[in-house]
Amino acid sequence: MPDAAPDPVYHAPPAATLLRTPLDLLDAIYDRRSGLTHLVGEPVPAILDALAAGPASAADLMQRLADDYAIEGELAALRARLAELAALGLVDARAL
């Protein structure tokens, strides 16, 4: 299906916004803006780390992740994860 809307650029929230505690299987993330605690597993911590280097489109982020990981998923799957993270408030999606 062709993309009707332009691909958004994803931004990490300001560094002080999220407090992260890496546990063994999951990361605990406290969002100071919402007061919510999130328990997230891979690939979420890797996505957040990759996005911390600067804003990126899904395609750019895929490239960054491929530098560190053997990527098995497709771009559509990464887009789906990013949309979920944006809904949770853990990343900001902005139109170009």
């Binding site: 407090l19 546990l23 063994d24 299987l25 999951l26 605990a28 605690t37 328990l39």
Partner: peptide, 29 residues
């Protein structure tokens, strides 16, 4: 118990974790 399972179960066993906000997160972490 994995630390992550323990963290999750303790948030459920706490009566005031949510109310304490960031300080509760730090203490529990």
């Amino acid at each position: 118990l994995a630390k992550s399972e323990n963290f999750m179960r303790l948030t459920q066993a706490s009566t005031n974790y949510v109310a304490l906000g960031e300080r509760g997160f730090g203490t529990l972490s």
